[in-house]
Every structure is written in structure tokens, then in C-alpha cells.
Design a protein around this nucleic acid. Structure first.
Lengths: 118, 118
DNA sequence: CAGTATCCCGTCCGATACTG
DNA sequence: CAGTATCGGACGGGATACTG
């Protein structure tokens, strides 16, 4: 990476991140939970999923952790929960606009990993 | 974000992330430690820093955590540690090529936060 | 200056059992 | 089906004191 490009990125990033609790830095909350990214990732590829679908896609996750993670992602505004009042109950999870907008950033980070984490 | 663009991103990302322990997904290790990103961020803006500089820049961090974080980032290959055998001892930390290459991804994520985490 | 060495505590998280 | 409730252990991380 050439120096001028690097410096221009640093400058832009510095302008964005004015303090550890600025909106830009809050995006790190996404990475906090142990399961957040994995849950988000399977949802990215599925458009809409139910509780049981997540459990099938991520066999190691427990009920407790899956619930907590989904609630967390809902609070963060990246996942939408839709409940249908039927018997048996049906609940569907999908990405919000904000959730979809994460994709370019995730891809960039994943690309980096693919290059440098071999 | 339009659907075709979204789908093309999903496809590219899926190709990259074949399993939870593929190189691409290993990039998440960067976000694991509580202080990793903050340490990395101050280093981005400084090119080279010493132990004491970090402590000044991040007042709340303890010796233990700073050491552990720097070691972790060194293991991940994003930070380089250079020790000069002088009295008093001098140690300098700087970014590696791989560390600098993180910048575009970080910026993308920060941009997202700035837009959606208000 | 640049760290170790200990001690200790809170929370995260897993396992299991139960429910509307 | 889609969760809650409860318990207990492991581990991340803080505070303090010490060292080559």
C-alpha cells in the first residue's frame, strides 16, 4: 500500500472516529458477542431464517446463546424479528437495510484475512 | 443497497469463507481482545510508538493488558516489535504491511457505523 | 523504561431442565 | 416451535506490587 493512499485513509478515519464512543466506533459492538458474526453470516446467505434454522446451521450454539445473540443483533438494528401468532409459533428473522449495508465492510475484512492470515 | 449488488457480494463472500476457520474468518481474531482495535487505531496515526506512548494515548489500559494486546497483535502479524539493547531499554512498535492493509476494511466498517449507529 | 508476577473478581458462556 | 430458567465453571481482564 503506497504511503499517500495510506495517509489519506488515516486522515479520513481520524475525522470519522473522534472518540472511543463515536458512532463509527460503536460499530465494534457488532463484533463483541462470541456468536454475532457467525449468526449474521448465515443470515446473509439465507435472507430469512427461523430459530430452528439457525440451530441447524450452527450446531454448537445453545438456545440461550442463540436467543441472546439474536436479541443483541436486533437491538443493534441489523436484524429484524417477525412473530406470527400461530400454533405452533413461527418467528422469522431477516436482515434490515442496515444489516445488508454491512456487507461491503465484511467483505473487505474477509479479503484481508484471505491474503494475510494463511 | 440494490439486490443484484447485494447478491454478488454474498456470492463473493461465500466463496471466501468456506468454513468458520478459513483464513478469511480468522480475521475476526483481530476484534477479539478488548483493547486490540484501540491499540491498533492509535498506532495507525503514529507510525511508531513506544510502550509508554501507548499508556499515554490510552490512559485506562493496564500494563498487563497492554503487554498482552501487543503480543497478540504481534502474533497476528499486524504489529512489529523492535527491541534496542540499550540502557535504559527502548522498544518500538510499528505496523507491518499487513497491518497497514487493514485500513480500507476498518474505514468501511467505521463508515457504516457513522451512518447507522447514531 | 518496559515490562512480570500475583491475586481476585465479574461476566460470559455451556449444560441441563422446563414451558406457552 | 421457539424459546426461559437456573446453576456452575472457565476465562478475560482489573488492581497492585515488583524487576532486569
Amino acid at each position: 500500500m503506497q504511503e499517500s493512499k495510506f495517509n489519506s485513509y488515516v486522515e479520513k478515519l481520524t475525522k470519522l472516529c473522534t472518540s472511543p464512543d463515536c458512532p463509527a466506533c460503536k460499530s465494534l459492538l457488532l463484533f463483541k458477542g462470541k456468536w454475532n458474526i457467525e449468526v449474521l453470516f448465515v443470515l446473509l446467505q439465507q435472507t430469512t431464517m427461523r430459530f430452528g434454522d439457525f440451530k441447524k446451521a450452527i450446531p454448537n450454539i445453545t438456545n440461550t446463546m442463540l436467543t441472546a445473540t439474536l436479541r443483541d443483533l436486533e437491538m443493534l438494528g441489523v436484524v429484524k424479528r417477525t412473530q406470527y401468532n400461530e400454533i405452533p409459533p413461527r418467528v422469522e428473522y431477516s436482515l434490515t437495510e442496515s444489516g445488508m449495508a454491512l456487507l461491503p465492510g465484511f467483505y473487505e475484512i474477509a479479503l484481508w484475512g484471505d491474503q494475510y492470515m494463511k
